[in-house]
Write a protein that binds this DNA or RNA. Structure first.
Lengths: 148, 148
DNA sequence: CCCGATTGGTATATTGATTACCATTTGTTT
DNA sequence: AAACAAATGGTAATCAATATACCAATCGGG
């Protein structure tokens, strides 16, 4: 069999850091999605479960702000988690709903956390600590840059 | 006025490299999209224009492979670029269409390239060369990691 | 010549995100 | 106390990107 038919197409974006960042991020996300598929949750749902676990009693607008997701987009996801019996809404304020994990939610969170640790280990485990620190620090510097 | 009402919500994902990578990538992409908005092109379209410029005569299936996009999803985007008079299809093969930039496409590509350079300079300009090299190399290592 | 592989294309469904709008409640201001 | 701006949860419409299944035409190797 011939080598994959792809004539070596020149990639005019290879030298762009923003592009490399995106491709690397997408690649790890693909892996994480696969890992979560076996747990029956989407990535978005898993992230929200983690937030609720770390911040019991928070409301969905707060989570949205922390994630850079609008309130509106939080609605169907949280509703799905409630329907699935993973999250419980506790009327706190007449206006806000305090979110908590149900026992099922706690159990699933444990498995999500294990899968997440395994994923990090798989993708970043053999990068030495100094380089990992540089990567982490650069990502945060980039995030802090104003948009324009 | 009070400080932004956000009670300091604990972020349980801060220590995850994959998460930081995603957030940093999303942030720079937001900036790039804004820059391209003024040029009247979407990010996807700009990327394709760059590929055609760098690989005159290539077909859309090749670009799709290089980008990780299916042939099917390339169709409407390339059709839009042709309709906009930026790309020209040249029947090469009876089966494949060789893509080239039109004069308008060349002109727009110049502005896209300038905007892209400015974007890179803005987001990564004050990161010193050694750290930039580490970031670039780590991104490529991460991309090369098998998924599972 | 035949058949598998490749290309462009159509149609469709789904996911994520964005926008506009509504009702209720809170909390500050006057 | 009344008025009003802001915040929360929610609904609905829309759009971009992606994914799947399928079709027609062409190319190329056995």
């Amino acid at each position: 069999m011939k080598a994959p038919v792809s004539p070596p197409l020149r990639d005019p974006l290879d030298h762009l850091l923003g592009y490399q960042l995106r491709r690397a991020s997408m690649h790890t996300l693909t892996g994480l999605n696969e890992a979560f598929e076996g747990l029956g949750v989407r990535l978005t749902e898993a992230i929200i479960l983690r937030f609720v676990e770390a911040n019991p009693g928070c409301n969905q607008a707060e989570i949205g702000r922390a994630l850079g997701v609008t309130r509106t987009n939080m609605v169907p996801v949280v509703a799905g988690l409630v329907d699935a019996g993973l999250v419980r809404r506790e009327v706190a304020d007449g206006r806000t709903h305090a979110l908590h994990l149900t026992p099922d939610g706690v159990a699933l969170h444990g498995r999500i956390d294990a899968a997440t640790r395994a994923h990090e280990e798989h993708f970043f485990g053999d990068i030495d600590a100094a380089e990992r620190a540089v990567l982490m620090q650069l990502c945060q510097r980039i995030r802090d840059r104003p948009l324009k």
